[in-house]
């Protein structure tokens, strides 16, 4: 175990209306076995002891599955390591003397609430507009009544692995939410249970996505590159297909 000294430049913003700016903090003796969030914990303990206000950031499970944490580290959502969330990024990816710039996920649809904490409820509203199979509790057919080829189940699972962290939006040059939306549409389009509503789903989820103020996809592939769950833009192609078909034939 070794330790490193760092200079942190962190976005501080008191609330949505306030103007923010990057503040510089020095943090010494950071163990390289620490996770990035533990490093922020240490900084917050230090700030608290100095009578300053700690940095607000979202986090919960700290094992990379809840999707609550996330920040842009030196320009990359969730930091330099591939396929990890910020809580799984370890300090051994940094070197002694590094300056790290930490900014919140930014998008027109993600207002900054405080420091690194943003409002991602737009993603919830996309799901609410149709990211489900309309089935009530009870009276469902036996689980084995519809065979599903295991390859389809696997592809659906690949898409369903999305944790809704919003890194795709944060990293997209245009702030588009196509990867997020396409992951849910793909999952349900690949399964027989999702067929009945597939057209309506594609139309209303895309409409909601546009309404929230997410940008247009320009196929820049940044979303796929930073996605902590490795979700492929193949799902975006599937969404485009589903949407085209739905728009031309629905109603």
């Amino acid at each position: 175990m070794s330790s490193i000294n760092l200079t942190l430049k962190i976005w501080r913003q008191h609330n949505s209306d306030a103007l923010g700016n990057l503040e510089t903090y020095d943090l010494d003796d950071v163990h390289t076995d620490m996770s990035f969030l533990e490093m922020l914990d240490i900084l917050n303990e230090k700030l608290t002891k100095e009578g300053k206000e700690p940095v607000a950031f979202d986090h919960d499970c700290r094992e990379g599955i809840c999707g609550m944490c996330g920040a842009v580290i030196d320009g990359i959502a969730h930091g330099p390591e591939k396929e990890v969330t910020l809580c799984q990024l370890h300090m051994r990816n940094f070197s002694n003397g590094d300056t790290i710039v930490i900014e919140p996920f930014r998008s027109r649809a993600f207002p900054v609430k405080k420091d690194l904490l943003v409002d991602r409820s737009a993603l919830d509203r996309i799901i609410q507009s149709g990211g489900y199979v309309s089935v009530n509790t009870g009276g469902t057919p036996d689980g084995n009544s519809l065979p599903i080829p295991s390859s389809n189940a696997e592809l659906a699972m690949d898409a369903a692995a999305c944790i809704g962290c919003g890194a795709c939006v944060a990293s997209c040059p245009n702030g588009a939410a196509m990867l997020f939306t396409s992951a849910k549409i793909s999952q349900l389009a690949l399964l027989p249970q999702g067929q009945a509503e597939k057209k309506q789903r594609a139309l209303s989820m895309v409409a909601q996505m546009d309404e929230e103020g997410f940008g247009n996809c320009t196929n820049a592939k940044e979303c796929e590159a930073v996605c902590p769950k490795g979700i492929s833009i193949r799902n975006i192609a599937r969404l485009n297909r589903e949407y085209l078909f739905a728009a031309l034939t629905e109603g």
Binding site: Y132, V133, V135, T137, G138, T140, P141, D142, G143, N144, L146, P147, I148, P149, S150, A153, E154, A156, M157, A160, Q187, L188, L191, Q193, G194
Partner: peptide, 22 residues
């Protein structure tokens, strides 16, 4: 009933090659 409910919701449970639940 829980399994049936979840399958109906589109939960991608692992499947055997024949398409049945694993």
């Amino acid at each position: 009933e829980i399994i049936d409910q979840c399958v109906a919701q589109g939960v991608p449970f692992a499947r055997e090659y024949g398409g049945t639940l694993a």
